[in-house]
Design a protein around this nucleic acid. Structure first.
Length: 261
DNA sequence: GCGACAG
DNA sequence: ATCTTGTCGC
């Protein structure tokens, strides 16, 4: 898939202020409401009702995106799935021009992700990107930046909270299948306090009282609402904390990294 | 100045 | 993200 908005391709040579300014533009261009070309109810993980039904060419393509690093190089892997089955896997290696800076992650990893997406033969209906989307200081996290640049629906799937106020403490997690709203606070400079910017989502939980799993932090990237983002993550989870497309991309990134090392 | 911060 | 063995609990 190709870049649709060249002006938003992450440029690592920009100053921090210019990066922040670009993110504000991206956030204004982003759509945090549903504009997806498929039915959320048709999305599923492998372990649901057996395997994929014969020839489900109508089932949406859900891709997982994840990165690994080798020295100063970023390895981005994209795994496209349909009904829980792998349809395509690609990866790209690009130099990581700048260090990790909270709030500016897309300028470090974005280039490698766009390169990997460019190598794709299939055009995913939605991308599950590791990191934040709308849950970001300027509502323009990695998932939002990538989604707006290629104009494809994206969901941010993070393992920890960057900013925002969870409606309830996240420590200890919640019952499996549950989600808790995360609202904008003073750290989110572009949104009014209280705005629903994402959810803490419990894709997995233990039954025993002396062991628990912390929730995933899910937020809209582009062209999806908070509710749909959470729904998609829960629908593609298959017994593990990470949704299946993300897990597969995780593994693919590690394998590609090993091959590059 | 202090705190807080995805991957 | 990455560096890494054992270890606690199902």
């Amino acid at each position: 898939m190709q870049v649709v908005r060249p002006e938003f391709v992450p440029d690592p040579s920009l100053s921090h202020d210019e990066m922040a300014a670009l993110q504000r533009e991206i956030a204004e261009t982003a759509l945090f409401a549903d504009e997806i070309g498929f039915d959320t109810g048709t999305v599923s993980a492998p372990t649901d009702s057996g395997q994929t039904t014969l020839g489900e060419t109508d089932t949406p393509l859900v891709a997982g995106v994840d990165q690994a690093f080798v020295g100063d190089r970023a390895v981005s892997a994209v795994v496209v799935t349909r009904g829980g089955e792998v349809v395509e896997r690609v990866h790209a290696v690009e130099p990581a021009e700048i260090p990790y800076i909270p709030g500016l992650l897309s300028f470090r990893e974005g280039g490698a992700i766009l390169a990997a997406l460019d190598a794709l033969d299939h055009d995913p209906d939605v991308l599950l990107v590791d990191g934040s989307g709308r849950i970001h200081f300027r509502e323009a996290g990695l998932a939002t930046h990538v989604g707006v640049t290629v104009d494809v629906p994206t969901v941010g799937v993070a393992k920890s909270l960057l900013c925002g106020d969870p409606e309830r403490p996240l420590d200890g997690g919640f019952p499996e299948g549950t989600s808790v709203p995360i609202r904008a606070d003073d750290a989110v400079e572009t949104a009014a306090n209280g705005t629903h910017i994402g959810d803490a989502v419990q894709t997995r939980q233990y039954d025993s009282p002396n062991r628990h799993v912390n929730p995933l932090i899910v937020s809209p990237g582009h062209r999806v609402s908070a509710g749909t983002a959470t729904e998609l993550v829960l629908a593609t989870a298959a017994g593990y904390k990470l949704p299946e497309p993300t897990r597969l991309a995780d593994r693919a990134a590690d394998e590609a990294k090993a091959a590059v090392s």
